[in-house]
């Protein structure tokens, strides 16, 4: 009996280790890919920084869609809130980049609170339509409030002060890229903890069966709203990063198109794993950049074809495909030795 208990305990420990190993390796891969981007594409760092900003947006969608099962086509609302907040703050003299990220996160979280409160009243298709309505309204509001947002010209003419007072945001975008990469890694680690927490587990449960969760005695609405706020903070940081690195905030940052594209990126990469969000963003935006240079008219067609292929062949997205190709890397917690 004791032997069984011991072997069980051993299984638990090794299960936990596999998990840690997997996440540690994943994190190393992200950093390695980021460093590779820095050395291989020194002339494209502005694009790569934009990839990171959008990756934060796609991560934030994964939190809501992948972990909670709430469909949204309006996530750019939260990204745009962060971008405009950071831009406006910078214009008004708050130029310290870390502070701007925090301001972006706070604005995104607040927008997430409002958006969640509205969207979570509805379900299914109505919820999706609400999300589109919200992003369109936000877009129109940003357009009309030109005194604050610059309207269709956007916000420009602000420049963040050097990072830690020493590293200037240079013309090649080196500082911005490395700053963005560090931010992404930090957020990724934090989110790994969030989705592995009791709260993350509760969200997974809600995604699958809210009735069951209620019959366990847990309220669904506050849990989802909390996730909306976290998601808003992440998207807002993405927006703030974009504002800092490009020193422009345009209406496109709060558009339906960006919302829809980033949802496509998530589906491409795979929902509910965080890795999928990163893979999907890189593939989609890489396609956008390289394929559109080769064939500027039909690159979207190719993205469409890729998406159809992924949905048909690997419903779990590209990250799911990798999971299948590397069975040794899968979480073995579920299997007994």
């Amino acid at each position: 009996m004791q032997a069984i208990a011991k072997s069980r305990q051993a299984a638990t420990v090794s299960g936990g280790n596999t998990h840690l190993l997997r996440d540690g390796l994943g994190l190393l891969l992200i950093i390695a890919a980021g460093a590779a981007g820095y050395w291989l594409f020194p002339d494209n760092l502005a694009l790569l920084t934009r990839v990171i900003a959008v990756a934060l947006l796609v991560l934030s969608i994964d939190l809501i869609v992948g972990y909670c099962g709430v469909a949204t086509l309006g996530q750019a609302t939260l990204y745009g809130a962060g971008a405009y907040a950071a831009g406006m703050a910078c214009l008004r003299g708050v130029t310290e980049p870390m502070t701007l990220i925090v301001i972006g996160a706070a604005a995104g979280a607040m927008a997430g609170l409002v958006m969640g409160t509205i969207m979570l009243r509805a379900h299914g298709l109505a919820q999706l339509v609400l999300s589109i309505a919200i992003v369109q309204l936000a877009h129109e509001a940003a357009n009309k409030a030109s005194a604050y947002t610059g309207g269709s010209d956007g916000l420009a003419g602000f420049s963040p002060s050097p990072l830690f007072g020493t590293f200037e945001f240079d013309l090649w975008g080196r500082t911005a890229y490395l700053f963005g990469l560090a931010l992404l890694v930090l957020v990724f680690i934090l989110l790994k903890f969030v989705v592995a927490s009791p709260f993350g587990m509760l969200c997974r449960g809600i995604k699958e069966d809210p009735v069951r969760i209620r019959s366990m005695g847990a309220f669904v609405f506050p849990v989802l709203l909390k996730m909306f706020i976290i998601s808003g903070a992440v998207a807002g940081m993405g927006g703030a990063l974009a504002a800092i690195s490009t020193q422009v905030v345009g209406l496109d940052s709060v558009s339906f198109e960006l919302s829809a594209n980033s949802l496509v990126m998530l589906v491409l990469g795979g929902l509910g794993s965080l890795y999928g969000a990163l893979i999907g963003t890189v593939i989609f935006m890489g396609f956008e950049h390289f394929v559109s240079a080769i064939n500027p008219f039909h690159w979207m067609t190719m993205v469409g074809a890729l998406l159809i292929a992924v949905v048909l062949v690997a419903p779990g997205g590209l990250s799911g495909l990798i999971d299948r190709a590397l069975p040794g890397m899968r979480d073995k917690g579920g299997q007994r030795p």
Partner: peptide, 10 residues
């Protein structure tokens, strides 16, 4: 009452 904690391991 600990199920919605963000900090803390499952």
């Amino acid at each position: 009452g600990k199920a919605s904690r963000i900090l803390g391991r499952f």
